[in-house]
Nucleic acid binder design. Structure first.
Lengths: 107, 107
DNA sequence: AAATTATAACACCTAAAGGTTACATATCGA
DNA sequence: TCGATATGTAACCTTTAGGTGTTATAATTT
């Protein structure tokens, strides 16, 4: 009965959404306050908040006429777990894969 | 003079690309071999490889008529650094933010 | 009660993402 | 050299992402 949940990787792909997450990590904020930090419309921000909510990365509660959003970091564990698999490569623990991290990295 | 580089967060947002990365972490592979693991067309795979290349997540070299791809994990550091900022929340180190990780997580 | 403020709900637009088919080119093996 | 194999790429299609503006509803303030 659950609608197709938004993928956390897809949710954090957008720079605006990452910035929103950063704001909500520091404090609980209503939509209007969040919007103040961006040049896009409030409607656009609301859409991003919907996506973040579907990915379970934020939670909201209604207080008076305001809707307050806050970070819910739980799903980020999935990203961390995914990353952990690749840690071994830049940690240089597998000598047979040493060449992968030895060459110059122009990024 | 550099073309707008692909964002690594955007590059890893697609499940197919993540699966490709996983394959290339294990061994260097030509396009045709990569394609065998997916039901999409070879052209689609090539496009994904282009995006991964632009994000500098893979490297390739031509050997005979084959083009061999391999993982280049370097740019993943950016994701790790980004994640590290959020580690504190699920590590429960900031008591004032305890409520963020205490509630049930239905994911 | 009236004016203001915060959010919700639509309808709509454009560009990009992700996919396809078709065709061209290059290399290998016999 | 010829056929099979590997890749490059152009043209096209459909869906979605990210954005807009407008209108409606609910709570607050004066």
């Amino acid at each position: 009965m659950s609608a197709a949940k938004q993928d956390v990787f897809q949710a954090i792909a957008d720079p605006t959404r990452r910035k929103v997450l950063e704001m909500l990590a520091k404090e609980e904020l209503p939509i209007t306050k969040i919007k103040e930090n961006f040049s896009v419309s409030r409607t656009a921000i609301v859409k991003h908040l919907h996506i973040l909510t579907e990915a379970n990365l934020v939670r909201s509660r209604k207080v008076g006429r305001e809707k307050l959003y806050v970070l819910h970091p739980g799903p980020l564990v999935e990203v961390r777990d995914w990353l952990n698999y690749y840690e071994q490569f830049w940690n240089n623990k597998l000598s047979m894969l040493k060449h992968l991290v030895e060459d110059d990295d122009q990024s």
